[in-house]
Every structure is written in C-alpha cells, then in structure tokens.
Amino acid sequence: MKFLEKYDFTKEDIAYFLNNSPKKLIDGVKEHKKLVGENIKYLKDLGVTNYQKIFLEYYDMFLMDHSNFVQIFDKYEPEDLIEKLNKNFKIVEFL
C-alpha cells in the first residue's frame, strides 16, 4: 500500500485504511493501484484538499473506471465543488 504515500497519504492514514477495511477491498485497491492512483490524482489535481479523507471513507468508489469517476465531479463548477468538498467531504455521497 506504499503507493498511497506518493499521493501524500501518511503512514497513519495507510494504517487506518488497512485496519478498518474488508480484506477483499484492500486486495482490490492493491491489485488496481494504477487505477486507484489515477482517480486519487484527479481529485488532488482538481484542488480538493481533503482527498485523503474522501479515499479513506469511499475507497470502493476509487475502483471505478477513471472516465466514469471523473464524470461524477466534472459536471459541477470546479470552484464551487472544491469549496463544498473541502468544507464537508461527505457531500460526495450526494454528487
């Protein structure tokens, strides 16, 4: 799971993920780390500051196909989206 460190996840974040997720999904993230990394990078590049929290809460969403993942977010005004996500990352559920 070291690949997450490339996206500024701390060791504590990674430990939390490993300790609080089903083994099957941990394996899925490891197996598809390139795809997961791509989706994480998209959020990071977009300017979302709490993308780590979004991943730690909704990690299975990051196993989506990249273009479909992007479609969740790119239909909103970026500045407005970033402001709202940074304020409360749980609005991801309502996008």
Binding site: K2, K11, A15, N19, I26, D27, K30
Partner: peptide, 20 residues
C-alpha cells in the same frame, strides 16, 4: 493502541517494505 495487520503481503517492485 491499534495493531495493524496487512492480510495480503504483496512485495511491491523496487520498494522497501516498511509497513506494519
């Protein structure tokens, strides 16, 4: 005090494994 268990030890290429 948490014990972190990595259930699927996968050796990642060209990386030193410094995990739990």
């Amino acid at each position: 005090d948490t014990t972190v268990i990595d259930p699927t030890p996968i050796v990642e290429e060209a990386e030193v494994k410094e995990e739990a």
